[in-house]
Design a protein around this nucleic acid. Structure first.
Lengths: 343, 343
DNA sequence: GCCTCTCCTGGGAGCGCTCCCAACAATAGA
DNA sequence: TCTATTGTTGGGAGCGCTCCCAGGAGAGGC
């Protein structure tokens, strides 16, 4: 009974050949129903499962997709963003019975070894790359290989890649118009790092929206690094400029900004109206609750998987999927939520 | 030039056989330095990488370990716990040049399909299972297979499994003694779900510590579900009992509890001293900053990988690794941090 | 009764690797 | 000079699967 449990063995027990068992396992077409029944009985009884590596080798397809999250990982996981993204991706891979392989790397020597591991033939069928910084060498590297991949976010040279992003620019513009609509006249901006495309898009969108409303940030602008602490410091600096509103390019930085406002003895939204971006920090975590531009992170992840499967399937003309954002009006901006059917 | 790039082809170009190239790729012993040099040159020039599936099939080892996180995933990712755990695991798999496969499942029909996918032969070499609930059927299922696995957390039937856990009981006991040492006499408990071993251990440890100090919770006990909102409701209920201290079995619930205290017009730590468990919420997120029993989540993850590699290597006598916790004294308990060299 | 067409089934070849054994050359020892 | 030993190399076998082709059985048309 120590015979290995493979197709041949299952076939032997069911009185058929390896090939017939294989056909049953793969959907059962071109097999008589009687034979199929018998083979399935043996499979159920023995608990046979096809050997993944053998299957990958023979079919040249692994059923695994990789998710690459580069650099600065330690800080990234304090941000719920990646958790949500992984959730969406995982849910989509489950739907199509694929497995998710996670490639996280901090900076350092392991970076290059992981990059090359990602493109190892026979390991994954395709890769989802999260592009956080501009000019990320990872994207260039991927383009130099034949590994199918899609980018979550907007790389600089987006033209030639498949990518899934949210409309950061439009979302930020909406935030500007919302603040202007509330009668605020001295808006400030706590921007996200300008070496990320998301940071640039949010900044530009906000400035664009202000311009449309006849407003400007003038010198009321400061840049954070996504962290809560950086938001707090940025707000501290801005307070000297006496702003009556601030758009913070991420929820986490906004939490820090709220703290700075409170510690300066000012009131939000009374003295300063706050709108943030992400919609990812649980609203009840802050007081007042944050009004923010919500991006559909989980959907982005799901969509990235679906897009990747088409690339694996042979799609070759780059496709850019852009999700809209939605403004969730709560207390921090000073508007009465119910009175605001914003878009 | 459309010849497939495999061992044979690399060998052909370097004027040696498939076997010799294989030896070079795998460390280069029993190969003359001259030959080795030539082969390495060809590898560098062609960018050859061995085919993972073929290697797995031939060597019966995939270089992949699976991480299984069962049920209720959606809520879990709002908790930094799993992010940290993944970080530790990922860092350890990188160190040993292995790949991490993530199996997340919500409840529902996909649950059983994923469970069986995890034990597919030739997919992963071993699995790390996070045991959140007592009597988790997943553990039993894994024991019925020959797949090597280790559990993060303490399953009910821990005796027969390899596991890595933190000393929840001792940590909670420390919290009790700390509160007692501050002179609090009406301690309350916001417990974690009693269908989890961590919840049970933290509850028992806290009660044990109180007993040692001659105190008791009497009816000042309420159970949450790990969520912030449940912590808030639990605290609300407990306020009627006029406690002067509360131990909250998780950081997230503690954030909710602080909110309830504030909303009731009471002061923490003035009226109520708060100590929580996890040490995972960034201290600056709350005011006052939380005193909490810190568990070394990342280290647990790293250790789980190392333990799993020994199981894959053939270790057979169950090993239980238990990490100590450490009390981080901040403002919410009312002690002066510097004055407290707690253990 | 013969040929064709369809349906089902079996087995060869091959995916790219590892493992093992045999062969060979060069060197040392007797 | 012959044998033993070591270091290096090549190739067969096999991992478990998929893909493809060929062959047999049965049904139907002439």
């Amino acid at each position: 009974m120590s015979r290995p449990l493979n197709l041949e063995e299952v076939g032997r027990r069911a009185g058929v050949s390896r090939s017939t068992v294989s056909r049953v396992v793969n959907g059962g077409s071109h097999v008589s129903s009687e034979t199929k029944r018998r083979v399935e009985a043996v499979i159920a009884e023995t608990g046979y499962r096809p050997h993944a590596a053998a299957r990958s080798l023979a079919s040249n397809s692994t059923g695994v997709i990789g998710l690459v999250i580069p650099s600065a990982v330690a800080t990234l996981f304090d941000d719920p963003y990646f958790g949500r993204l992984i959730l969406g991706i995982s849910s989509a891979t489950n739907d199509v019975s694929m497995t998710l392989a996670l490639f996280l790397f901090g900076d350092g020597p392991d970076e290059s070894s992981i990059i090359s591991r990602v493109v190892t033939p026979g390991l994954v069928d395709g890769v989802i790359v999260t592009a956080t910084t501009r000019g990320d060498p990872l994207i260039d590297h991927m383009q130099g290989t034949s590994m199918p991949f899609v980018v979550v976010g907007r790389p600089d040279n987006a033209g030639s890649t498949f990518c899934v992003d949210v409309d950061n620019r439009a979302g930020a513009r909406t935030a500007a118009l919302h603040l202007a609509g509330l009668g605020r006249r001295r808006p400030a901006l706590i921007a996200a790092p300008s070496n990320t495309t998301a940071g640039v898009d949010r900044r530009n969108g906000f400035l664009e929206g202000l311009a449309e409303a006849g407003l400007s940030v003038e010198s009321r602008i400061s840049e954070g690094d996504w962290s809560q602490e950086s938001g707090r410091r940025a707000m501290d600096r801005l307070l000297a400029e006496r702003p009556d509103a601030v758009f913070v390019a991420s929820d986490r930085m906004a939490v820090g900004a709220l703290r700075a406002i409170r510690e300066a003895g000012l009131d939000c939204p009374g003295d300063i109206s706050v709108v943030s971006f992400d919609g990812i920090v649980p609203p009840d975590l802050t007081a007042p609750r944050l009004t923010s531009v919500v991006q559909p992170v989980t959907e982005v992840g799901e969509r990235a998987v679906r897009l990747l499967t088409t690339v694996i399937g042979g799609a070759s003309t780059p496709e850019h999927v852009v999700f809209p954002t939605e403004l969730a009006v709560r207390e921090s901006c000073g508007a009465t939520p119910a009175a605001e059917p914003e878009r």
